[in-house]
Design a protein around this nucleic acid. Structure first.
Length: 725
DNA sequence: ACGGGTGTGACA
DNA sequence: TTGTCACAC
């Protein structure tokens, strides 16, 4: 559950932008004939007409719903146009939608910090833009207010029957006597209206939006008036909005937590949450969730808009329902290969377009074991260091699968027999790539390691690929029983899961400790890397520069800037910065903050690579030392003298206090420590180099307290059955 | 035996 | 750190 912050921090202007039946719009843009017709996007036409994944508003009028089958939809709405999701490698291919989403983001990201929340949703932090507008060109000074803006819906605004609602809205937007925060919202609404028009002009897509003082309210608002409309939530309307709102409508409460609220506390609307004390909610749901619930009941949510427009992971998966479950090794391998191909392709694209490298490969599967009542055992997911190259990914994914399968059938008492059908079937497979980090650019760039070489893809991908190989080679867990493998031949032979016959052993028995760089180099695939570069000596020329052990260049470089902090300053990571700055305070503290934070980076000397070995060691040491569960977000614990930090005290504090009071206590603590992190205004982060902005923001964000559920709560038991029982 | 394919985040 | 789970669209 997100960290909640005090309500005073909510003078922000946040927008949530939601594309209207996005997949349908993408298809309608491709096929303009479909515009205005009842349309749905459907996946896998073969069985019952396929599953609907997006439905146009015209079709909704007929009662067509997502999660209908194509056949049903036809029944309810005979004229419906069903468009199939593109298929590649015999599976659904969502790339066109992802790309379309990127188009939208590139427009929306112009006016402030932008977070891509999903393929078709975006949050914007428009606080600064709205403040600037209010200061320079406030709505009341405008002769004309944009037509789209006056079409806004203002929650709580009385627009009399039959009257011209737009006039009321225009008046509300232009009010000069209004609440300051309302005026900021008005500016936000005008900005968002403009953005939405730009999106329409430049992408042909319509969207809806909510404008409010925090993410939660903005998200709620964007759904109120659809399609192609926007809704503003003035502070004065929050209570009324939430009072009667079904609890399940709140983000995060649409699932089991929401159900528990209903069944265990009898809470059906957000308003009914108000009667419970924060302590009570914490008792029931743990410290963090309890405080979060208490806050959202009051319309308070402190989640920040993450300035992230690129995904943190990529995945490719497919289900094999019922009769289509995969029952042979060959079938699994066949599909795994396809999934890996797609993943590899997307990783290469990400690398090419965004200069980012993924470090972890994970395999997920679902399986059943027939007959046995024990068939509910889960197929374990497995991960390993990600090596670039389609074939490598395929090999690694296959090995992960084998490891998972061994575990899975291991817990299966009846011995597997026969060749074809062993009583199990795979009902879903997916591979994903995570821990994606940007290749640093600029002064402290990785390029320092490769004098005279061009690191990036185009036009020659050669040196870049070498670089990737380095990253994979030296990736963190790569030292464990991994790279000693040499799995170049097809893995069709399968020793009936006997375990010890498999050449590959993930489960930690130390084998293959010795890494063989030469082999690893030569094994490099391929398909997305151009062929010539895997065979020559370039790799060998640079490999001596590689750290021998655990850290990749990328991680090292990413951490380097932090590593340079002085001890005092690095402790910033433990403080909970208060974001309830007034506008004035923002401005005045800005300079100070800028100086202060830039000071942190002054030692960030381009010559750092010369010190890399000792840095690696330091990083590794500290990493080992700080694996005690209180590591801050973003792997920043790099100071050797971190043991001076009053960790235990903080833990104790956070574990035993309630939300607001403990927040206050932490502030106090911080004061006592003498660290002036609250003088660093969050907005200065915008002035830092883009590639480190997010990390710095992470340090400035309040940290979550360890979740402690008090004993004796039946509801807590519901959520943490294993541990509390 | 799943709406399906992806994605994020909390937690142990 | 990994693996599991919940949640969302």
């Amino acid at each position: 559950m997100p960290v909640a912050k005090p309500e005073s921090s909510d003078a922000r202007i946040i927008a949530h932008v939601d594309m209207d039946c996005f997949y349908v719009q993408v298809e309608q843009r491709k096929q303009p004939d479909l515009r205005g017709l009842p349309t749905a996007v459907v996946q896998y036409n073969s069985w019952k007409g396929g599953a609907l994944i997006a439905v146009s508003y015209e079709a909704r009028k007929y009662g067509v719903k997502r999660s209908m089958r194509g056949d049903e939809a036809k029944k309810v709405c005979p004229p419906i146009q069903l468009v199939q999701v593109p298929v590649a490698r015999d599976k659904a291919d969502l790339n066109t939608y992802r790309n379309a989403g990127s188009e939208v983001v590139s427009v929306l990201a112009r006016k402030g910090r932008c977070e891509r929340a999903s393929i078709d949703e975006v949050y914007l932090d428009l606080t600064e833009a709205a403040e600037t507008m209010l200061a320079e060109t406030p709505p009341e000074s405008l002769e004309v207010i944009d037509e789209e803006a006056v079409k806004s819906h203002i929650l709580g605004l009385n627009t009399e029957e039959g009257s011209d609602a737009k006039e009321f809205v225009r008046e509300w937007l232009r009010r000069s006597d209004g609440d300051h925060r309302d005026k900021l919202l008005a500016c936000g609404a005008i900005i968002v209206a403009e953005l939405r028009m730009q999106v329409l002009r430049e992408t042909e897509f319509t969207c809806s939006a909510g404008i409010a003082h925090n993410k939660m309210l903005a998200k709620l608002a964007s759904a109120i008036n659809k399609p192609a409309q926007q809704t503003v939530v003035p502070l004065s309307s929050v209570k009324g909005l939430l009072e009667s709102l079904p609890i399940k409508k709140m983000k995060q409460l649409g699932g089991k937590l929401g159900s528990s609220l209903q069944s265990d506390l009898g809470v059906n609307t957000v308003g009914e949450l108000l009667q419970f004390s924060e302590e009570k909610l914490q008792e029931c749901y743990g410290i963090n969730t309890g405080t979060w619930l208490w806050n959202i009941a009051r319309g308070v949510s402190g989640e920040e808009v993450q300035g992230r427009i690129l995904p943190k992971s990529h995945g490719s998966g497919k289900t094999f329902p019922g009769p289509r479950a995969l029952k042979t090794i060959a079938a699994v391998q066949h599909w795994l290969n396809k999934l890996c191909e797609e993943l590899s392709e997307r990783l290469c694209l990400d690398l090419d377009q965004n200069k980012r490298i993924a470090h972890t490969l994970t395999l997920h599967a679902r399986a059943y074991k027939s007959g046995d009542s024990d068939s509910c055992t889960k197929f374990p997911s497995k991960s390993c260091p990600l090596r670039y190259g389609t074939v490598k990914i395929q090999e690694d994914a296959w090995n992960l699968f084998q490891a998972g399968l061994r575990e899975y059938v291991g817990s299966y008492k009846s011995k597997t027999q026969g060749s074809q059908y062993n009583g199990w079937g795979i009902t879903s497979l997916s591979v994903s790539a995570s821990k994606i980090v940007a290749i640093p650019s600029g002064t402290s760039s990785i390029t320092k390691y490769f004098p005279g070489q061009n690191l990036y893809c185009s036009p020659s991908k050669q040196s870049q690929d070498n670089f990737i190989q380095d990253a994979a080679l030296s990736s963190p867990s790569g030292s464990e029983s991994y790279s000693g493998l040499n799995l170049t031949e097809p893995q069709i032979e399968f020793p009936e899961f006997s375990g010890e016959k498999n050449k590959f052993n993930y489960a930690g028995t130390s084998q293959g400790q010795q890494r063989d760089k030469e082999n690893t180099w030569k094994d490099q695939d391929p398909s997305c890397l151009s062929p010539q570069h895997t065979q020559n000596g370039v790799a060998h020329e640079i490999s001596p520069l590689l750290p021998s052990g655990g850290e990749s260049y990328l991680e090292m470089n990413g951490n380097e800037q932090q590593r340079e902090f002085s001890g005092e300053e690095s402790r910033i990571k433990y403080s909970t910065i208060s974001l309830d700055r007034t506008v004035q305070k923002r401005k005045t503290s800005k300079d100070k903050g800028t100086v202060s934070i830039l000071k942190f980076f002054k030692n960030c000397d381009p010559s750092w690579p010369s010190k890399k070995q000792e840095h690696i060691e330091a990083i590794r040491d500290v990493k080992a030392a700080s694996s005690d569960g209180f590591q801050s977000t973003g792997s920043v614990c790099l100071e050797p003298n971190q043991d001076e930090l009053p960790k235990e005290r903080l833990l104790e504090e956070t574990g035993t206090n309630t939300g607001r009071s403990s927040l206050a206590r932490i502030e106090q603590e911080r004061e006592a420590w003498g660290y002036k992190t609250d003088e660093i205004d969050p907005s200065v982060v915008d002035e830092l180099p883009p590639e480190i902005q997010e990390e710095v923001r992470a340090w400035l964000r309040p940290h979550k307290r360890p979740n402690v559920v008090k004993r004796g709560s039946s509801i807590a038991h519901y959520f943490f059955p294993a541990k509390n029982r």
